[in-house]
């Protein structure tokens, strides 16, 4: 069982874009420790010869024809936006670059 440090949890929170207080990080790293200990059991039977299953019911090649269907009206598209301007979603300044 691998130990998970508070720093690791902080990094996970950063990846997951969730601000966390020190108290939250402390609490969560303790819980993660316990949960990971329990779920690590999967490794006992997951041998190399077992293929992974990602879809419970195997289906292939589900596609749609390349046909345009009406979009939402811009009003509907923007209806849930916390802020909008010039028919666009208005968001706080984007600092990073992808």
């Amino acid at each position: 069982m691998s130990a998970i440090s508070r720093e690791e949890v902080a990094n996970l929170a950063r990846l997951a874009r969730i601000e966390m207080s020190d108290a939250e990080l402390d609490h969560l790293s303790g819980e993660m420790q316990v949960i990971l200990g329990a779920v690590a059991r999967v490794q006992e039977v997951a041998s190399a010869d077992v293929p992974p299953t990602s879809h419970p019911i195997p289906v292939n090649n589900v596609v749609r024809e390349d046909v345009v269907i009406p979009s939402l009206s811009p009003t509907d598209a923007l209806s849930g936006a916390p802020a909008s301007s010039e028919q666009r979603f208005k968001v706080p300044q984007i600092l990073g670059e992808a």
């Binding site: 999967v42 992974p52 299953t53």
Partner: peptide
């Protein structure tokens, strides 16, 4: 973790 879990699923 995730990979092993998918195997258990099988």
């Amino acid at each position: 973790y995730y990979g092993s879990a998918q195997k258990v699923r099988t």
